[in-house]
Structures are given as structure tokens and as C-alpha cells.
């Protein structure tokens, strides 16, 4: 696979910042669209915080 296409170094933040927040929003014919992104960010905020905590706890393990 092409090097460029596999940008593993692209952070999740950069991805979410665009793919979830930007791009064309189609309505009408669409079966599902994720309209309320702020809600997702809110959820993410909590998730990221808890992931961070989890890592902290793991850091204490021998």
C-alpha cells in the first residue's frame, strides 16, 4: 500500500477534528447522518479523560 495513504502518524485528534466535524452534510435522502457532533465531542472528552486515567493506573503496575 502507498506510503501516503497509510498516515499512521496522523493523530486521532486531527482525524476527528475533520472527519467528524467537517465535510458535506447531506440531508433528505440520507438514511443516517451524524448531525450533532458537539454531543460526540462531549462523549469523546469523557472517553479521552478516562483513557488517560487508565494509562495512569497502568503506569503504577510493576
Amino acid at each position: 500500500m502507498n506510503e501516503l495513504a497509510r498516515q499512521k502518524d496522523v493523530t486521532l485528534l486531527e482525524l476527528l477534528d475533520r472527519i467528524l466535524d467537517k465535510g458535506v452534510v447531506l440531508t433528505g435522502d440520507v438514511l443516517i447522518s451524524i448531525a450533532d457532533v458537539d454531543l460526540i465531542y462531549l462523549g469523546l472528552n469523557l472517553i479521552l479523560t478516562s483513557v488517560e486515567k487508565m494509562h495512569e493506573y497502568q503506569g503504577w503496575e510493576p
Binding site: L4, Q7, L12, I19, V30, I32
Partner: peptide, 27 residues
């Protein structure tokens, strides 16, 4: 999100693309 982006990245190399928001799904 990574799979979505990786596909667009590949398409982009050959064509200009208007990206949709994640989770745009049709019946």
C-alpha cells in the same frame, strides 16, 4: 475514522474529492 480517511487519501491521489462528513449513510 482511519479506514474512512485512508480511502479518501487514496482517491485523492488521482481525483479531487468533496468529502462527506463521517457517517453519511444511504438506504
Amino acid at each position: 475514522v482511519r479506514l474512512h480517511q485512508e480511502l479518501l487519501q487514496q482517491i485523492m491521489q488521482e481525483r479531487t474529492i468533496v468529502p462527506m462528513k463521517f457517517g453519511t449513510i444511504f438506504q
